[in-house]
Simulated scan of single mutants.
Amino acid sequence: MSQQLQTSSKLEASEARFSLSRLRRSPLTLLLHFSVLLIVILWTLPTAGLLISSFRDKDQLALSGWWTSLTASEQNLMVRTGGADTQIQDGDVFVLKGQLLVDNKAAQVRAFGFSSGEPTKFIPGDIAKMKNGGELTVTADGKYRMTSLEPFKGNRGKRIFFTAVVPPKFGLDNYHTVLGAEGIGRSFINSLTVTIPATIIPILIAAYAAYALSWMRMPGRNILIAVVVGLLVVPLQMSLIPLLRLYNDIGALFGVGAKTYVGIWLAHTGFGLPLAIYLLRNYISSLPKEIIESAKVDGATDFEIFMKIVLPLSYPALASFGIFQFLWVWNDLLVATVFLGTGEEHMVLTARLRELLGSRGGNWEILTASAFVSIAVPLAVFFALQRYLVRGLLSGSVK
Rank of each mutant, 00 (worst) to 15 (best):
Q3G: 11
Q4F: 10
Q6S: 11
S9Y: 13
E12I: 15
E15I: 15
A16I: 05
S19I: 09
R22G: 03
L30N: 12
L30M: 12
V36S: 04
T44K: 05
L45G: 13
P46A: 01
G49C: 11
S53C: 04
S54T: 06
F55S: 01
K58S: 14
L63A: 10
S64F: 14
G65R: 08
W66V: 05
T68G: 09
T71W: 11
A72R: 14
S73L: 13
E74S: 15
E74K: 15
Q75H: 11
N76L: 15
R80D: 11
G91D: 08
G91C: 02
D92H: 14
D103M: 04
A111N: 06
G113P: 08
S115H: 06
P119R: 14
K121Y: 12
F122D: 11
I123T: 14
K129Q: 10
K131C: 06
G134E: 10
E135H: 11
L136P: 05
V138R: 01
V138H: 02
T139N: 03
D141W: 00
K143Y: 07
R145D: 00
M146V: 12
P151T: 07
P151Y: 03
K153M: 09
N155A: 13
R156D: 14
I160A: 00
I160T: 10
I160V: 11
F161T: 01
F162N: 13
V165M: 09
P167M: 04
D173L: 05
D173H: 11
Y175P: 08
H176E: 13
G180T: 02
G180I: 00
S187V: 12
T193Q: 14
I201F: 08
I201P: 06
I203Q: 15
I203G: 01
L204T: 13
A206T: 08
A210Q: 15
Y211G: 02
Y211R: 03
L213Q: 04
P219L: 10
I223P: 00
V227N: 04
P235V: 06
S239T: 15
L240I: 08
L246T: 14
D249L: 08
L253V: 08
G255E: 12
T260I: 10
W265S: 03
A267I: 13
F271Y: 15
L273E: 04
Y278T: 08
Y278H: 14
Y278V: 01
S285M: 12
I291D: 13
I292M: 11
A295P: 12
A295N: 02
V297R: 03
D298W: 05
G299I: 02
A300C: 15
K308I: 09
P312T: 02
A317Y: 02
A319G: 07
G322R: 03
F324N: 10
F324K: 00
L327S: 06
N331V: 02
L334G: 05
L334F: 11
A336Q: 15
A336D: 07
L340M: 06
T342Y: 10
L349Y: 06
T350L: 07
T350P: 08
A351F: 10
L353P: 02
R354Y: 06
E355H: 07
L357E: 12
G358T: 01
T368D: 09
A369L: 07
A369G: 09
A371L: 11
F383S: 03
F383A: 08
L385Q: 03
Q386R: 14
R387T: 02
R387F: 00
R387C: 00
Y388I: 07
R391V: 13
G392N: 12
L393R: 05
L394T: 15
V398F: 15
